[in-house]
């Protein structure tokens, strides 16, 4: 139980950054912003989760600053699923370790 609590604390206390260089057939790799993430001009999508079901998806804007897109998260079949309010694809977290997440994008209606 303590492990699950620690896992959740890490999930909520972290800004997760898409490290596309490490994507695989399993899904997209997200790592903690605090990790040594390679420099990239290709924008890296980020997200943050709060315990109350609020999520923030951050994408680079026209002046390269991150712009927040409102989103919500909920549990679905044991996975955390982030649903942007913009109608963009949802993000399903299918695996988690202390500093890494594997995430699959899914269109509305996909399971």
């Amino acid at each position: 139980m303590a492990g699950k609590d620690a896992e959740q604390a890490q999930l909520f206390g972290t800004t997760w950054v898409h490290v596309f260089e490490e994507d695989s057939s399993q899904g997209a790799m997200y790592r903690s912003e605090e990790d040594d993430i390679p420099l990239s001009r290709r924008p890296r999508e980020r997200f943050q989760l709060e315990r109350n079901g609020v999520a923030r998806v951050l994408i680079p804007g026209p002046d390269d600053r991150y712009v927040e897109q409102p989103a919500k998260w909920s549990e679905d079949k044991g996975d955390v699923v982030i649903r942007p309010c913009t109608g963009k694809p949802s993000l399903r977290i299918i695996a988690q370790s202390p500093s890494r997440l594997i995430v699959r994008a899914q269109q509305p209606g996909d399971s």
């Binding site: 800004t15 912003e33 890296r44 002046d63």
Partner: peptide
């Protein structure tokens, strides 16, 4: 952090 080069 996060590999970002910069912004303005």
């Amino acid at each position: 952090g996060g590999g970002l080069l910069g912004y303005a």
